[in-house]
Write a protein that binds this DNA or RNA. Structure first.
Length: 866
DNA sequence: ACCTCCCGCCATGCT
DNA sequence: AGCATGGCGGGAGGT
C-alpha cells in the first residue's frame, strides 16, 4: 500500500522499476538469478557465500579481496542500485574465491568471522552509495537486493540500516525499501543529537557514573549528594533514559507501523550512543558507561547482568556501523581496573543545532524556538507504543524519583558493574588493528575510493561515482578515509544553524532559526511522552509558512557542486526568511547559511552565544504562545528535515499525505539550517505538530526548564557579537562544568582552535591527551579538510594540521559574523574533533568534582589554555 | 578467560 | 496467514 503511494510520488525512476516493493526480493532476485546463477538463493538470504572473504590470514589479501569486491560496487553505486551492482560485484567476488580456493583453504576462504563482521558488511553497504547522493536521483535501497548482493542475511542489513536510519542517512520508504540520503543530513542530525544529548544531560550522567565508580573504589561517599542532584535534575528534565528517537522528518513517519518498535530499538540506542560522544568532553565513551546510560541510570544498580550484556552486544553492533562511517573508532581506555573497551568520536565536530542560545544551557529549548519558524515540520507521533499515557510529566517525575533512589542505592552499593573507576586516562587509541587490520584496510580503500569519487560526484552528480577510479589506492593511506567529509559540507552547512551568531539571538532565538532553515523538522518525543503528543495541529499557529523554495533545486545543487550548493543555500535562506520574525539577526543568519554551506562541514559548530537572559525571556514568550497548544512533551526533538530535501520526493509525498497545512513545497527544504532544535527536554516543552507532518512546529519551553537552566553566567556565553567568538560547544561545556561545579565561573573552557587552527574553532579538550590530541586533531582535520579540499590532501595523512582545514570559505572572522559562527568550525572543528582520547572517566571524574578528587586532571582548564 | 559479536530463533506487528 | 522487522541472547571465534 504505502509502497504504491510512495512510488507514485517519489519515485521517479527506480520505483517504477521496482514497482513492487513488496517483493523486491523477487525483483532483485530475478535479477540476481539472471546475473548470478551462483547465488541461487532467491529469497533467502543465503549466508555468505562470499568468497571474497577468504583469507583471514593476510590482511592484505583480505583487503584485496574486499576491495575488489567493493570497488565494482562503488562504480555502480549510483546507477544501479541494485541491479547492476550485483552483477559486477558478484562476479568478481567469485573470481576471487576461485583464486583463493585454488590456493588453499576453503576453510579460510570461508568466512572467517571477521569477514562477516558487521563493520565490514557495513563498509560494503556504504560503498554502494555515495556519501552525498544527488537528491534528484532516486536513491532507493532495496533491502533484499542489498542482502543478496552482499550475501548476507537480511537480518544483518536491518542492523545496518537501523543505525543509518538513526543518523538519517537513510529513511524508510516502504517495505523493503529505504532511501539513501548519505551524509547530507548527517551534520544536522548530529547537531540535533548533540542538542538532545545536552538536554538530557548525558555529559553529566557520564560524569556521575564515573564519579560513582570512582567513589566506589575509593569509598567516597561525599560527593554523593551532589550526584543525586545532578541525576535528579537530569531525570527530571528528560528522562534521558527514556528518550525517544530523534527523527528526521520526512522519512520515517511513513512507516508508522514500523515505528512501533522504535522506542526501543537499535535506532534509539544508536542515537543515544552518538549523543554520548557528542556531549562528552573527551568524546571517548566506554562501553560500560554507554551501556549504563542507555539502560538508564536509574536502573543501573538494578542492572542485571544479562541486560547489561545484551546492551553491550547491541552497542558493539552499533559501534561497528558507526565505525564504518568513521564516526568513531575503537580505543581502549585503561583504567585502574584494566582496559576497558571504549570508542572515540572521530566524526566531525558538531555544534548543537539548536544553535543559538543553547550554548548555555543544555536546554536547547531556546533553540527550538528559533526553529519553530520553520515552516515545515514534520511531526510524528511515533510513540504509540509506550504506555505512558499522559504527557504530563509523569514520566519525568517518575524517573526523577527513581533516579534519586537509585542514586542513593548506587552510592551505597557498589555497582556490580564491571566498570571500575577510572583512571585517567586515556589511553588513546589504540588500535585494535591487528585483528581488524583487514577490515581497516578494506575500509580505507573504500574510503579512498569514495573520496576520489566524491569530488567527481559533485561535479557530475551522482553518476560519477561509478568511476571508482582508484580503487587501488594503497591501503596505507588510511588517511584518506577521513576525507569523506568533504563534499557534503555543502549541504549541511545550510543545515547548520547560523543563527546564533548574534548575541541577540538569544533574545529572539526563535526567529533566527528560520531564516536559514526553512527546513522542516521532525520532532520526536520520547516514546513515553510521545503519547501526549497528540497535539496535532493545534499548535501550528506559530508556524509560518514560509514560502520556502523547494528543496529540490537545492538538492540538486548540493549534489552538483558545493558552490552551487552554497548558492542555493543562500537562496533558500532568503526564501525561508520571510516567515521569520527576526530582523537583522536573521539576515545575518541567512548569510550564515550561505556560509554554512560552505563552511558547514567545517563548522560544526555553529554555535552561538546567547544571552541567557534573553533566552529565558524567549522561552517564556514561547511558552505563552505554545501553551495554547497544549501538549507538553517531556522532551521532544526536532530534527530538521533539511536534507531530506533531498528527499524532495519524499517530502512531497509527505506533504501530500499531510495534506493539510503546508503546501508540499514548503516543506521540503526550506532551510537546511534548521538544525535541530531540540526542544527543551524539559518536560514542558510543547511541540506541536500535527501528527503527521508538516505543520509547523512550535516549541514551547516550559518555564521550568528555563528556570532550570542556568543561564547566563558564563562569560563566555555572552554573545556579543555577531560573531560568536566562542563556540557554542565551548560555551556549553563551560556551562555544564559550571553547573556541575567543576569549574569556577570565571574559568571557561576555551575553544582553542587546535593547534594552529583557527582561533575560532572551539575545542575542548580533554586533559590528558594533550599531546596526542594535537596529533589526532590533525588527523581529523585532514579528514575534514579533505572533503573540502577534496583531493587536495591526498591521502596523506595528515595533514598538516589544521590549516588546511577548511576549505571552506569561511573565514573566520572576517567576513561575516554569521559565517563565522557557523564556520568557525572550519578549522576548528576538525581539530576539535580531535579532542583527546582521554577517557571520559578520567576526565569526567575529575571534573566532577569540585568535590572530587584532585587527582584527576581538570582537563578542561588545562587544555584550553593552550 | 575475556572480548567481540555472529547467527538466527522467534516475538511483533503490519499486510 | 504470511511476511517484514528486529529484539535478544547463545555461543563461538579471536586474542
Amino acid at each position: 500500500m504505502e509502497n504504491e503511494k510512495e512510488n507514485l510520488f517519489f519515485e521517479p525512476c527506480k520505483r517504477v522499476l521496482m514497482k513492487t516493493p513488496l517483493k523486491e526480493s523477487n525483483t532483485p532476485n530475478t535479477v540476481l538469478a539472471e546475473i548470478q546463477p551462483d547465488l541461487g538463493p532467491l529469497t533467502t538470504p543465503t549466508k555468505p557465500k562470499e568468497c571474497s572473504q577468504g583469507e583471514p590470514w593476510t590482511p592484505t589479501a583480505n583487503l584485496k579481496m574486499l576491495i575488489s569486491a567493493v570497488s565494482p560496487e562503488i562504480r555502480n553505486r549510483d546507477q544501479k542500485r541494485g541491479l547492476f551492482d550485483k552483477r559486477s560485484s558478484l562476479p568478481e567476488a567469485k573470481d576471487c574465491l576461485h583464486e583463493q580456493l585454488s590456493g588453499d583453504e576453503y576453510e579460510k576462504s570461508q568466512p572467517s568471522r571477521k569477514e562477516k563482521s558487521l563493520g565490514l558488511l557495513c563498509h560494503k553497504f556504504l560503498a554502494r552509495y555515495p556519501n552525498y547522493p544527488n537528491p534528484a536521483v532516486n536513491n532507493d535501497i532495496c533491502l533484499d537486493e542489498v542482502a543478496e548482493e552482499l550475501n548476507v542475511e537480511r537480518r544483518r542489513i536491518y542492523d545496518i540500516v537501523n543505525v543509518l536510519e538513526s543518523l538519517h542517512m537513510v529513511s524508510r520508504l516502504a517495505k523493503n525499501r529505504y532511501t539513501w540520503h548519505g551524509r547530507h543530513n548527517l551534520n544536522k542530525t548530529l547537531g540535533t543529537l548533540k542538542s538532545v544529548g545536552e538536554e538530557n544531560k548525558y555529559a553529566e550522567q557520564i560524569v556521575m557514573i564515573k564519579k560513582k565508580e570512582y567513589e566506589q573504589e575509593f569509598d567516597f561517599i561525599k560527593s554523593y549528594n551532589i550526584e543525586d542532584h545532578i541525576i535528579k535534575s537530569n531525570s527530571g528534565q528528560n528522562g534521558h533514559s527514556d528518550m525517544c528517537f530523534v527523527e528526521l522528518p520526512g522519512v520515517e513517519f511513513r512507516a508508522a507501523s514500523v515505528n512501533s518498535r522504535k522506542d526501543k530499538s537499535l535506532r534509539v540506542m544508536s542515537q543515544k550512543f552518538v549523543m554520548l560522544f557528542l556531549v562528552s568532553a573527551p568524546q571517548t565513551v566506554s562501553l560500560e558507561i554507554a551501556a549504563k546510560i542507555l539502560i538508564g541510570e536509574d536502573h543501573v544498580e538494578d542492572l542485571d547482568k544479562s541486560k547489561f550484556k545484551t546492551k553491550i552486544r547491541r552497542l558493539y553492533d552499533i559501534a561497528n556501523v558507526l565505525s564504518s562511517l568513521d564516526l568513531i573508532k575503537k580505543v581502549h581506555v585503561t583504567e585502574e581496573r584494566g582496559r576497558k573497551p571504549a570508542f572515540k568520536w572521530t566524526g566531525p565536530e558538531i555544534s548543537p543545532n539548536p544553535s543559538g542560545p543553547s550554548p548555555l544551557t543544555p536546554f536547547a529549548s531556546s533553540d527550538l524556538e528559533m526553529k519553530r519558524p520553520s515552516k515545515e515540520n514534520c511531526a510524528k507521533n511515533l510513540f504509540s507504543t509506550r504506555g505512558r499515557s499522559n504527557f504530563t510529566r509523569h514520566p519525568s517525575l517518575i524517573k526523577l524519583v527513581k533516579s534519586i533512589e537509585s542514586d542513593r542505592r548506587k552510592i551505597n552499593s557498589a555497582p556490580s558493574s564491571p566498570i571500575k573507576t577510572n583512571k585517567a586516562e586515556s589511553s588513546q587509541n589504540s588500535a585494535p588493528f591487528p585483528s581488524k587490520m583487514a577490515q581497516l584496510a578494506a575500509i580505507c580503500k573504500m574510503q579512498l575510493e569514495e573520496q576520489s569519487s566524491e569530488p567527481k560526484k559533485k561535479m557530475k552528480a551522482q553518476l560519477a561515482r561509478s568511476g571508482p577510479c582508484k580503487p587501488a589506492a594503497p591501503p596505507d593511506i588510511p588517511v584518506n578515509a577521513e576525507l569523506e567529509l568533504t563534499v557534503p559540507s555543502l549541504i549541511q552547512p545550510l543545515g547548520v544553524v547560523p543563527l546564533i551568531p548574534n548575541p541577540l539571538s538569544s533574545a529572539v532565538p526563535v526567529i533566527l532559526p528560520q531564516p536559514p532553515s526553512g527546513s522542516s523538522y521532525a520532532i520526536y518525543l520520547q516514546p513515553t511522552q510521545a503519547q501526549s503528543m497528540t497535539t496535532p495541529q493545534g499548535l501550528s499557529p506559530t508556524v509560518c509558512p514560509i514560502p520556502s523554495s523547494k528543496a529540490t533545486g537545492s538538492k540538486d545543487s548540493t549534489d552538483a557542486t558545493t558552490e552551487k550548493a552554497t548558492n542555493d543555500a543562500a537562496k533558500l535562506n532568503a526564501s525561508t526568511k520571510p516567515g521569520n520574525l527576526l530582523p537583522a539577526p536573521e539576515k545575518q543568519a541567512a548569510k550564515n547559511g550561505d556560509r554554512e554551506t560552505a563552511g558547514e562541514r567545517g563548522s560544526k559548530r555553529a554555535s552561538m552565544l546567547e544571552d541567557s537572559g534573553s533566552l529565558k525571556k524567549f522561552k517564556e514568550d514561547l511558552q505563552g504562545l505554545e501553551n495554547v497548544s497544549t501538549t507538553l512533551f517531556p522532551s521532544g526533538y526536532l530534527i530538521p528535515l533539511t536534507q531530506c530535501s533531498s528527499l524532495g520526493a519524499e517530502s512531497i509525498l509527505s506533504s501530500k499525505e499531510n495534506s493539510d497545512t503546508l503546501s508540499p513545497n514548503h516543506r521540503i527544504y526550506s532551510s537546511p539550517i534548521a538544525g535541530i532544535i531540540p526542544v527543551t527536554s524539559s518536560e514542558l516543552t510543547a511541540v506541536n505538530f500535527p501528527s503527521f507532518h508538516v505543520t509547523p512546529l512550535k516549541l514551547m519551553v516550559s518555564p521550568t526548564t528555563v528556570a532550570a537552566v542556568p543561564v547566563g553566567n558564563s562569560p563566555a556565553l555572552t554573545s556579543s557579537h555577531p560573531v560568536p567568538v566562542q563556540n557554542p560547544s565551548s560555551a556549553i561545556v563551560n556551562f555544564t562544568l559550571r553547573h556541575l561545579g567543576l569549574i569556577s565561573p570565571s574559568v571557561q573552557v576555551s575553544s582553542s582552535p587546535g593547534p594552529g587552527t583557527n582561533p575560532m574553532s572551539p575545542r575542548i579538550e580533554a586533559v590528558s591527551g594533550i599531546p596526542e590530541n594535537s596529533g589526532t586533531q590533525q588527523g581529523r582535520a585532514s579528514r575534514y579538510d579533505s572533503p573540502v579540499s577534496g583531493q587536495n590532501q591526498p591521502n596523506g595523512q595528515s595533514v598538516a594540521v589544521a590549516g588546511a582545514q577548511q576549505p571552506v570559505p569561511v573565514t573566520p572572522k572576517g567576513s561575516q559574523v554569521v559565517a563565522e559562527s557557523f564556520f568557525r568550525t572550519p578549522g576548528g572543528p576538525t581539530k576539535w574533533a580531535g579532542s583527546s582520547c582521554v577517557d571520559l572517566d578520567g576526565a569526567n571524574k575529575t571534573s566532577l568534582g569540585t568535590l572530587f578528587v584532585p587527582q584527576r586532571k581538570l582537563e578542561v582548564s588545562t587544555e584550553d589554555v593552550h
